[in-house]
Every structure is written in C-alpha cells, then in structure tokens.
C-alpha cells in the first residue's frame, strides 16, 4: 500500500527524518521555554509600574527581543553561521540548527510570557506582598502558576512555529523532514516524498496543538 502510494519513499530515511524533526523541535522547544521564561519574567518585572520597574533595563531587553523577533528566520540562520560553528563545531546535522532555532523562538515566547504575566491580577501580587512574600515567591508561586494556561498556550504556538523553522533549517542541511522534502523530493522530482514529508509535518503540528490545548484546559481553573 505505502509502496504503491509513495514509490520513491525509503521508509528508513523517512523515519530518521521524522525523528530528526522531533528532536530539533523538542530540544529547541525546551531551551526556548526556559530562556523565554527567564527573559519574559525579566521583561515583566522591569516594565513600568511593576516590582523591579527600571526604564533603561526594560528598554534594552525590549529592543533586543524585538530585533530578534523581527529578523526572518532564514536570514537569522545565515547570520548565525559563525556563532554556530563556534558552539556546535560544524555546520551540518541536526544540532547545527539548534542555536538559530532557540534564538529565533525564545524572544517570541518571552513576549507571550510577558503578556501572560500581565493578565495576572495586580491584587494577587499585592496580597502576596502583604503576606510577606518576596520576589521569589511572586515569580514561582504566583506569576508562573497563575499564568499557567497562558504559558501553555503560548508554548503550543511557539512549538508549532519551531516545527516550521526546523523545515527551513533543513534546507541549509540540518536534516529532518524539511531536508527530506527539499533534497529527496523537490530536487529529485519525487513529488510523493514531498507529499509524505508534508503529511508528517501536519501530523506533528496537529499532535502538538491537541496536547497543548489539553494542558491549557487542565491548568485553567478560572
């Protein structure tokens, strides 16, 4: 059946490409989550009227996130080639894509974190301070749990963009489904391979969306 529908598809290769895409998405997703959370928290706390309000710091962080958020991903990859060589050592393979993926997605997620924290009622932070809570309590016991649904739905959106980014990274040789679709499918004129790769990307995106919605719903006690 599969051979009849996709005569040019080599299953082992397809499977490896799928795993590569999942690997790149998962690792860059995890790093984006942590970095985005740190950066988003810093953005929120230093913004005007908040606990650590500081105009220059907020301005600098804000500018930085906006710059990295605005650079088209394909250009970001090229710009980061020297940096990636330095960190990863070589410019091929799945790990080569990671720095660009993380630097492209973390500022985006940071903004979503900042917006999520803004939704947390000011009064709850006030109540926490009135009970004697410090900045650590406010971050870990108030902001993050109270913004849980926003953090989860933001992460879902970010992971889906990351799947798209990995496909682009594939074009410059990072492996994965994008690489397969481009090299084996497009360049060798095997339409069936491109189609199979596209189908698998869709399955991955739908699965992320489904899981993300589920987690968001579970966290939402409002």
């Amino acid at each position: 059946m599969i051979e009849w529908l996709f005569p040019n598809l080599r299953l082992a290769q397809f499977w490896t490409a799928t795993l590569d895409t999942l690997y790149m998405t998962a690792v860059s997703g995890a790093a984006t989550f942590v970095l985005g959370l740190v950066l988003g928290t810093a953005l929120f706390l230093t913004s005007p009227g908040q606990l650590l309000a500081n105009r220059p710091v907020y301005g600098a962080l804000s500018l930085l996130t906006n710059i990295f958020r605005s650079i088209p991903f394909i250009i970001l990859i090229v710009l980061l080639i020297p940096f990636t060589r330095f960190v990863v050592g070589r410019m091929l393979g799945v790990n080569a894509a990671l720095p660009a993926l993380i630097i492209g997605a973390a500022p985006f997620y940071a903004r979503l974190v900042e917006i999520g924290f803004r939704e947390v009622a000011k009064g709850v932070i006030e109540a926490t301070r009135a009970m004697g809570g410090g900045i650590g309590t406010i971050i870990f016991k108030v902001l993050i749990p109270e913004a849980g649904p926003a953090l989860a739905s933001g992460l879902t959106v970010t992971l889906i963009s990351l799947v798209g980014y990995t496909a682009m990274a594939g074009v410059i040789g990072a492996g994965g489904l994008g690489h397969l679709a481009y090299l084996e499918g497009f360049q060798r004129n095997n339409g069936d391979v491109t189609l199979a790769a596209t189908g698998m990307v869709l399955v991955i995106v739908f699965a992320i969306q489904f899981a993300g919605d589920l987690v968001t719903r579970i966290l939402d006690k409002r």
């Binding site: 009622a121 009064g123 709850v124 006030e126 109540a127 009135a130 009970m131 108030v142 749990p145 109270e146 849980g148 966290l219 006690k221 409002r222």
Partner: peptide, 13 residues
C-alpha cells in the same frame, strides 16, 4: 499583619 481586600485577591490556580 493580616490584610483582606475588596476583590479578595485569591490565587485562582
């Protein structure tokens, strides 16, 4: 020094 508020300010999570 306990404090209570008009809008309760509970953690909904």
């Amino acid at each position: 020094i306990g404090m209570i508020f008009q809008h309760f300010n509970l953690l909904w999570s």
